[in-house]
Amino acid sequence: LQAFIKTLTGKTFTVEMEPSDTIENLKAKIQDKEGIPPDQQRLIFAGKQLEDGRTLSDYNIQKESTLHLVL
């Protein structure tokens, strides 16, 4: 599935991932794409901060969901 990552500066980019991917995997993909170390990334979806060990499906993240990236 493709999801949108929106930063506080208003920049939006897309990442490809599977519902079974962990938040940790997602942070690694963001690092590959944007060069931001995972330990500096905080991802917010539906008002909740996402925990590394959980999966996208745990948070009911669907295709074309928008996640907010806070540094």
Rank of each mutant, 00 (worst) to 15 (best):
T66V: 15
T7F: 11
I5F: 03
P38H: 12
D58T: 04
I61C: 03
K33Y: 09
E18P: 03
P38M: 15
A3W: 11
Q40C: 08
E16C: 10
Q41G: 02
K27F: 02
S57F: 09
I5K: 02
K63I: 08
G35I: 01
P37M: 06
I30K: 00
K33H: 13
G47V: 02
T22W: 03
M17P: 01
K63L: 09
I61A: 04
T12Y: 09
E34F: 13
L71E: 07
Q41A: 04
N25C: 09
D58W: 13
L56P: 02
A3T: 12
G35W: 02
S20F: 11
V70E: 10
L1S: 08
Q41D: 01
K11V: 08
T12G: 07
S57T: 08
G53Q: 10
D39T: 10
P38K: 15
A46Y: 09
V15L: 11
I30V: 04
S65I: 14
A3S: 03
K27W: 02
I61F: 08
T55W: 05
I36Y: 15
S65V: 15
R42C: 11
L43P: 00
T22Y: 06
K27A: 00
Q40E: 10
N25W: 09
Q31K: 08
K63N: 15
L1C: 06
L1E: 04
D32T: 11
F13H: 02
H68A: 05
L8D: 14
F4C: 10
T14E: 07
P37R: 09
I5E: 02
K33L: 14
L50T: 03
K11N: 08
V15W: 02
Q31V: 03
A46R: 13
F13N: 00
V70F: 14
P19M: 13
Y59P: 01
G47S: 04
P37D: 07
D52R: 03
M17E: 00
N60T: 06
E16A: 09
T55F: 08
Q49P: 11
M17C: 12
L67P: 03
K6S: 11
Q62S: 13
T55Y: 08
V70P: 00
V70M: 12
N60E: 06
F45Y: 13
K27E: 00
G35N: 07
L69A: 01
L67T: 02
A28Q: 13
T7M: 15
L71Q: 08
V70S: 08
L26H: 00
K29Q: 08
V15M: 07
L71W: 10
L71K: 05
A28C: 07
M17Q: 02
V15C: 03
T66M: 09
K48Y: 09
Q41K: 00
L56Y: 04
I44T: 11
K27D: 00
P37K: 06
D21Q: 07
F13Y: 04
D21A: 09
P38I: 15
H68L: 15
L1R: 05
I44R: 04
H68E: 11
D32W: 10
F45S: 03
A28E: 09
L50N: 01
